[in-house]
Design a binder for these strands. Structure first.
Length: 232
DNA sequence: ATAAAGGGGAACGCGT
DNA sequence: CACGCGTTCCCCTTTA
C-alpha cells in the first residue's frame, strides 16, 4: 500500500501537502502496527485535505482507507494475511488501491468503454446526477479491480489471467463479497453466496461464466478484452 | 453423512 | 407510474 500511496503522492506533487506524509510514504523500514496505524491517520488526513481542495470542499465524506485490523496478523503475512480493507466511497484519485504503474487507467476510463460501467467517482450519486448519468459500478468491474490488485491476491486471483479465469479463496471469499457490499453501500452485509448469485446472472448476459471448478469463474473474451484495453 | 458450494425463482431497489 | 435491469433473499440440489 505504501507504494500505492507513494505513487499517488508523486502524481500530485504540485499540491501542497504534509511533508510528514511524504516522508512516511518513502520510508520503507519495517513498522509496528501502532506506527502503521498512526502513519495511516496522517496520510488519510492529507488525502482528505487534498480531496477537499480539489473538489471545492465537497460535503460528502469521501475517502478510502486500507485499515489494518488490530486483531490481525502482521501485514505482510503472505497467504494468512488478514488485512481488513475498509472501503468507503473513494475519492477520484483512489478509485481503487492500485499500484502506481496502473494509475494510468481509472475506473472513469473503464466506464467510458464499458456499458453500464462507471467509476466510483461517478458512483457518487451527486456527481452522477450532475453528469446526468445513472450508471453504476458493476460487479464484474469490481472483481477485475480486485484481480488486478496484488494486495487482494489472498482473496481472489487469476488462474490463469490469460484465459480470464479467476478463483476465489475458500477462506477469504467473503472478504471480497464484503468489500463489494461496502462499495455498493448495501444496508445488509454482502456474502459470497449472494455475490455468486449475481455472478451466475452474468452467464445470461455472457459477461462471466461459471467454470466447472470450485469457486472458479471466467470472464468472457469480450469482457476481458474491454477491461484489459482500459488498463493498457 | 455433512458442510460447502452451486443453482434458480422471485422479490426488491433504483434509475430512466 | 411503469418498465428494465441488476441485486438480494431464500431454499433446494449437487459436490467433495
Amino acid at each position: 500500500m505504501w507504494s500505492v500511496l507513494g505513487g499517488f503522492v508523486d502524481g500530485v506533487s504540485s499540491v501542497k501537502f504534509s511533508q510528514t506524509a511524504r516522508t512516511l510514504l518513502r520510508d520503507d523500514r519495517p513498522r509496528s502496527l501502532m506506527e502503521t496505524q498512526s502513519d495511516l491517520e496522517v496520510i488519510l488526513e492529507f488525502l482528505e485535505e487534498y480531496y477537499r481542495q480539489s473538489t471545492g470542499e465537497h460535503e460528502d465524506k469521501v475517502y478510502c482507507t486500507a485499515a489494518v485490523d488490530e486483531r490481525s496478523a502482521p501485514v505482510d503475512d503472505g497467504a494468512s494475511c488478514e488485512r481488513r480493507w475498509t472501503y468507503c466511497e473513494p475519492p477520484p484519485f483512489l478509485a481503487h488501491d492500485a499500484p502506481p504503474a496502473r494509475c494510468q487507467y481509472t475506473t472513469a476510463t473503464l466506464s467510458e468503454s464499458l456499458p453500464n460501467c462507471v467509476s466510483t467517482r461517478q458512483a457518487s450519486k451527486h456527481q452522477a446526477a450532475a453528469a446526468g448519468s445513472g450508471r453504476k459500478v458493476r460487479l464484474f468491474h469490481f472483481l477485475f479491480e480486485m484481480l488486478e490488485d496484488p494486495n487482494m491476491a489472498h482473496c481472489v486471483s487469476w488462474v490463469p489471467a490469460a484465459a480470464g479465469v479467476f478463483r476465489f479463496s475458500s477462506r477469504n471469499k467473503d472478504q471480497v463479497a464484503a468489500l463489494w457490499g461496502q462499495r455498493k453501500g448495501n444496508k445488509r452485509p454482502m456474502t459470497y453466496q449472494k455475490m455468486s448469485r449475481a455472478l451466475r446472472n452474468y452467464a445470461r448476459s455472457g459477461e462471466i461464466f461459471k467454470v466447472k471448478k470450485k469457486l472458479t469463474y471466467q470472464f468472457s473474451q469480450d469482457t476481458l478484452m474491454l477491461l484489459r484495453r482500459c488498463v493498457i
